[in-house]
Design a protein around this nucleic acid. Sequence first.
DNA 1: ACGAGGTCCTGCGAGC
DNA 2: TGCTCGCAGGACCTCG
Length: 274
Amino acid sequence: MPELPEVETMVRGIRPALLGRTIVRASLSHIDVLRGVTRPRLLRILTGATIHDVTRRAKHGVIHLERYRFVLQPGMTGNLLIYDRALAAAESKYAVLRAQLDSGVEFVFRDVRRIGTLLLLDERGWARYDAGLGPEPLDPGLTVEAFAERLRHSRAAIKKVLMDQRRLVGIGNIYANEALFRAGIDPSKPAHRVSAEAWPRLFQHTQRLLRAAIDSEGTTFRDYRTGTGQPGSFQLELMVYERQGEPCRRCGTRLAGTHDIDGRITVFCHRCQG
DNA sequence: ACGAGGTCCTGCGAGC
DNA sequence: TGCTCGCAGGACCTCG
């Protein structure tokens, strides 16, 4: 489930191969991933386009073309991949978008479940898209005050608020669970009741967690791979996610699992996250 | 304005 | 063995 660290890793992985390259041929196997653009139009614009930059915004990859930004939202099982060889049958089966570069390398958006989406935005569209997203948690300009201010007014559970991309981007279910454990905050606590002294802790642990996960090239359970096809390794460092029923790594208490918040699996330690 | 809940997708594993 | 069903969840939508 690509969240900020996974998308950052994929973008870093594909960037060197894409930078300055021209797309000589493009194909799209399913149109249900497209938003606001038709297949003929997308392929017409991609073909012959030169890639000026590849960046990340929130949990999305952004391929900068001359007049457009091509936004790839991996969703749950989406991958941004570079191949310097022919694809095996199993690899091409789920290759939703394929783009041959003038270097001979192939860029692929692979997505088994196709919850992922593709957007082609002009400058106005990009501005609207960007404005609808919250700040980047690793932006050096983001202060603890601004972080807390954006989250603390909601009456919803802090875990749900932390995952709300309009308030703060990049955090999904895995890192929300992990950040709240590391900060010692009960995931079900309404955000407006989180204590003043807990916000700096949450801010610091969230940043530290995301940086560590990037260093480990993300968390791989099943589908996620780096831009060059390697699994990440942060799954080895998870404290709570996928560990319900197992002992807390800090105090040994049996970790609780619940679907009570936003219908998503929440794992936490009753003792460490009182 | 805000929050809750439904929908899209397919592979996988549990249960019968 | 072979089937059904529930679940995984990011983004987006509608409804209250």
